[in-house]
Amino acid sequence: MKRTEKIKFIGEKLDELFPNPPIPLNYTNPFTMLVAVVLSAQCTDIRVNQVTAVLFKHADTPQKMVKLGVERIAEIIKPCGFFNTKSVNIFKLSQALVEKFKGEVPHSFEELESLPGVGHKTASVIMSHIFKLPAFPVDTHIHRLAERWGLSDGSSVEKTEEDLKKAFPESEWEKRHLQIIYFGRTYCKARGHKDEDCPICSVIKSKKRPPQQSAG
C-alpha cells in the first residue's frame, strides 16, 4: 500500500471509529487543564480525573494553588504517583504564572516550556486543545502507533511529531492526536497486539488494497 493510500485509510478509519473524540481530562480553565496534563505523566486519565476532582475544589487558579502549598498538594495528588516531584512542579509553575504572567497561562511554546514540569508534549496539549493553535502532541500511544503503522521510524518523539505533521493536514492535528490515543487504548495496545485483530493494522500490513469508502 502506498503511503498516501495508507494515510487516507487511517484517517477514514479513525473518523469512522472516533468521529468526535473528547478530551479525556477534566478541566474548567486553561490552568486546571495545564495541571491535569502535568499530573497525567505516568498516570491514567481516570486516576487523574479522580485526583483533580478533589484538588480543583481547593485550588482552581494559580493564586489558590500557591496558597495551598507543596505539602497539601502532595497529599491530595499522592494517588497519581511521582507525587513529590509533581507537587513541587505544580506549586512552582503556579508561582511562575502569578509572578511572570499575571496568573494567566501563556500562549506560546517558549513561555509554556519555561514553566517547571512543563515539557514540549504538555505545552503542545495546551496549545492545541486550549488555545486552538497548531500543535501535534505525541504521547506513548501516538509514538507507538506511528511506528507500527509505518508513518515514522520510532527513533524519537520529535521525529514522530515531525512525520505526523507532514502526514496529516494542520486542520486535522487536534482531532488526529485524540483519535490515535483512543485507538491505541482500544484496538492497538502495546502488549498482546495482533495485527489481524486490529482494524487498521489488519489492512495496512496486508497485501490487500484498503476498502473503498462509499460516497455519501
Score class of each variant (00 low, 15 high):
residue 3 R to E: 02
residue 131 F to E: 00
residue 96 A to T: 13
residue 132 K to F: 12
residue 121 K to E: 00
residue 44 T to M: 02
residue 186 T to M: 02
residue 65 M to G: 12
residue 162 E to F: 15
residue 1 M to I: 14
residue 38 V to A: 12
residue 109 F to W: 10
residue 37 V to Y: 03
residue 196 E to R: 15
residue 32 T to A: 09
residue 206 S to R: 06
residue 214 S to T: 11
residue 128 S to T: 08
residue 63 Q to H: 12
residue 70 V to I: 14
residue 128 S to M: 02
residue 48 V to D: 01
residue 23 I to M: 14
residue 157 V to Y: 08
residue 17 L to M: 07
residue 115 L to A: 11
residue 37 V to A: 10
residue 68 L to Y: 04
residue 189 K to E: 00
residue 83 F to N: 07
residue 153 D to G: 14
residue 174 E to I: 15
residue 176 R to Q: 08
residue 18 F to I: 09
residue 147 E to L: 15
residue 108 S to W: 01
residue 77 I to L: 03
residue 119 G to P: 07
residue 86 K to P: 02
residue 128 S to W: 03
residue 71 E to D: 14
residue 78 K to Q: 06
residue 144 R to I: 10
residue 70 V to S: 04
residue 8 K to L: 11
residue 153 D to C: 14
residue 145 L to K: 09
residue 50 Q to P: 03
residue 160 T to R: 07
residue 198 C to T: 08
residue 49 N to C: 12
residue 122 T to L: 02
residue 117 G to T: 03
residue 134 P to T: 10
residue 79 P to M: 03
residue 101 F to N: 07
residue 162 E to L: 15
residue 35 V to H: 05
residue 155 S to F: 10
residue 15 D to G: 11
residue 63 Q to Y: 11
residue 2 K to P: 15
residue 127 M to G: 12
residue 135 A to L: 05
residue 177 H to T: 12
residue 127 M to W: 09
residue 140 T to S: 09
